[in-house]
Amino acid sequence: MFSSQAGGAGEEDKSAKFTGWAAVPGGNGVLQKWSYHPRPLAAEEVEIEISHCGVCGSDIHFSTEGWGPITRPAIPGHEIVGIVVKRGEDASHQIGDRVGVGCLVSCCRGTSVCDWCRKGEDQFCQNKTVTFSSPYKDGRGGISEGGFADRIRVYSDYAFKIPKEISSPEAASFFCAGITTYTPLKRYKAGPNTRLGVIGIGGLGHIALQWAAAMGCREIVAISGRDNKKDEAFRLGATKFINDKEQIKEAARSLDLCLCTNASHNNNWEEYLSMMAPLSQLVLLALPETPITFVGSHLVSQDVAIVGSHLGSKGDIDEMLEFAAKHGIRPWIEKRSFEDCNEAMKDVHAGKPRYRIVLEMNPSSSSTSTS
């Protein structure tokens, strides 16, 4: 089942133990050190020694049980970068490859392939497994564990080679924040004729502004509740900055496409919809924990669509990485030690980072920034 490079199966593989920082039932978002035995390495899988993992809002929603109760310890983290240290005989990567893992670790396997996987839209696969706290549906049992850990095993088609131009800590944020913002801009053909809005200039929004600038959008409007982000928004590619109700009124019917990256319960959907031009799309990327309410006439009178956008396909991820390498797009990050993951989670929850925190397994310094 394994090549000589795979490190062998047998007792050594059965005794393998990975250690990470897990969310626990009733833990109020505080992660605890926890170890588990991974599934045996399959022929198409690789084992990755993790060097970096980004901290995402989704990790916080999950760990604080904002998306529902946690029933068992579970390691979050889905912006993973590391080195392949073991491989199954049919894996597509070699020992030593530098790879990244995002929000999915498996889709349809074998001969029973769903329509979405056939279309190359595997993010909608009926049999997908997300990166943490998700049952595998490949017939081998087990539950996925995420990247706030020393190692992870995934199917090799969900481990993506990282272009040499992108450093490992910078690469991590592309595997959720990057692909989440890149996909809708690609799907809705953002370009020279697009007047684009980005609501929320944070972990997702600051990358969205860079994609838009590289795609040559006609106008790039940063919409933020924080005036102290204005200068940075322009550095990131914005051509206009909006942060009060009067400016929103002045921007009525001015956006062809708008990405909402803000999950706040304070979002004013009526105001956002007032900025949308006829035949435009307001795309939800963040996941608010409270219901979204708005008056239907905003949609009907202008033929405006509110749509969601869910990650991206394997092909989208490869394309995004090449695009980022070519155009010099990089997340602005702050590096922290994995041991400081709880403090990092608190800071992300409070909206402190400018603009993404990346956990580092062997940090050269306790806290450094890249922008």
Rank of each mutant, 00 (worst) to 15 (best):
F234G: 05
E232P: 03
P192V: 11
Y136I: 15
W269N: 03
I179Y: 02
G29D: 09
G68K: 05
K86H: 15
S92A: 15
A42H: 14
S365Q: 12
I306L: 11
A324W: 08
R98I: 15
S156C: 08
A233Q: 07
A43V: 12
V300M: 07
P25R: 04
E145R: 03
A42P: 08
S134L: 11
P353A: 02
F124E: 05
F234K: 05
Y36I: 01
A252P: 00
I152P: 03
Y158A: 00
L273T: 01
V101I: 14
E121N: 13
L311D: 12
D150N: 14
L321D: 02
H93G: 07
R226G: 06
R109Q: 15
H349D: 10
G68R: 11
L284T: 10
A91S: 10
K119D: 13
F160Q: 00
G10W: 12
E165A: 15
V99L: 00
A344W: 03
L31I: 11
R72D: 12
T368I: 12
T111R: 15
G178W: 10
T290M: 06
G197C: 12
P363H: 03
C217L: 13
G110R: 04
S264I: 09
I50R: 05
T19H: 04
S134G: 08
G96V: 01
V105A: 01
G225H: 15
S167D: 09
I357Q: 05
